[in-house]
Amino acid sequence: MSEYALPRKSSLKTAALIGLRVILAALFAAAALAKIAGVPQMVQEFDTIGLGQWFRYFTAVVELTGAGLTIWPRRSAFGAIVLAGVCVGAFFTQLLALHGDVIHTIILGAAAGVLAFVQSSQLFQAR
């Protein structure tokens, strides 16, 4: 066999899952930090939503929690479910209150959903 043999499927799958987990966590952590830092666009969006600025902080905490769980190998399915839930809320908020772009919420939600589905065995393991 050649020294340039193709990697096994399981190692490719593992690498893809790690990459997806890192990308999702980084994107949601960045969004959360923008909310916490009080980026004017975030403050304005949450004013438009009408629930108050406390909701901006609450959303940031949920996003950071989901990002952290997504990075944690044994809890990444739970994190992905949290992030998918954030995306569902963001989708309806964009659609109904902000009248903005919903494509990013669909793409990120689908990615989080795929991650949760692929790692769903974590959800049923007794620890």
Rank of each mutant, 00 (worst) to 15 (best):
F55M: 13
L123M: 11
L51K: 07
G85C: 00
L24D: 08
V39N: 12
V88R: 01
L33E: 06
L83Y: 04
L98R: 01
A80M: 01
G100F: 03
A116N: 11
A34Q: 14
S76P: 03
F28Y: 15
V82D: 04
Y57W: 13
I18M: 14
I18W: 15
T105N: 15
A60P: 01
G79M: 00
L6N: 11
R8P: 12
S76V: 00
L108M: 11
G109Y: 06
I106A: 07
R21C: 10
T65D: 01
S120K: 14
V88S: 03
L33Q: 09
E3I: 14
L27C: 13
E45Y: 09
W54R: 08
L108W: 11
V102F: 03
I103M: 12
I36D: 04
G66C: 04
A112V: 02
G100P: 01
G38Y: 06
I81T: 05
L20K: 10
A16L: 15
I36H: 03
A110Q: 08
S121W: 13
S76T: 08
V118D: 08
I23Y: 15
D101A: 11
A15H: 08
A112E: 02
K35I: 06
S120C: 07
G89E: 06
T59Q: 01
A112T: 02
F92K: 00
F91I: 00
G38D: 08
Y4A: 12
G66W: 02
M1N: 10
L115D: 06
L69K: 00
S11L: 15
M42L: 09
I103P: 04
A16C: 12
I18C: 13
A30N: 14
L24E: 09
L17D: 09
A111I: 12
Q119A: 10
Q119V: 05
I36E: 03
V62Y: 04
W54K: 08
L51W: 15
F28I: 10
K13N: 11
G52N: 01
E63W: 02
H99K: 13
G38W: 05
L108D: 05
F28P: 04
A77G: 03
A80C: 02
S120N: 12
F92Q: 05
A67S: 09
G79E: 00
G66F: 01
R8L: 11
A26C: 06
I23H: 09
G100Y: 03
E63D: 02
A90D: 02
G85V: 00
L51R: 06
S2W: 07
R56T: 08
A126C: 09
F92S: 01
S2Y: 05
V61W: 13
R21M: 08
L6W: 12
R21V: 07
A77Q: 01
Q53H: 15
L123V: 03
A116F: 09
K13F: 11
V114C: 03
Q41M: 10
L69P: 01
I71A: 02
I107T: 13
W72D: 06
C87I: 04
A31Y: 07
L95F: 15
I103H: 09
T59G: 00
G109P: 06
T65S: 08
L96S: 10
T14D: 15
T93F: 04
F46C: 00
I36W: 03
T70N: 03
T105H: 14
V43S: 07
I49Y: 10
A90Y: 01
T93P: 03
C87M: 15
L12Y: 13
G50M: 00
A5N: 12
A32D: 07
P73A: 08
G89I: 07
A80I: 00
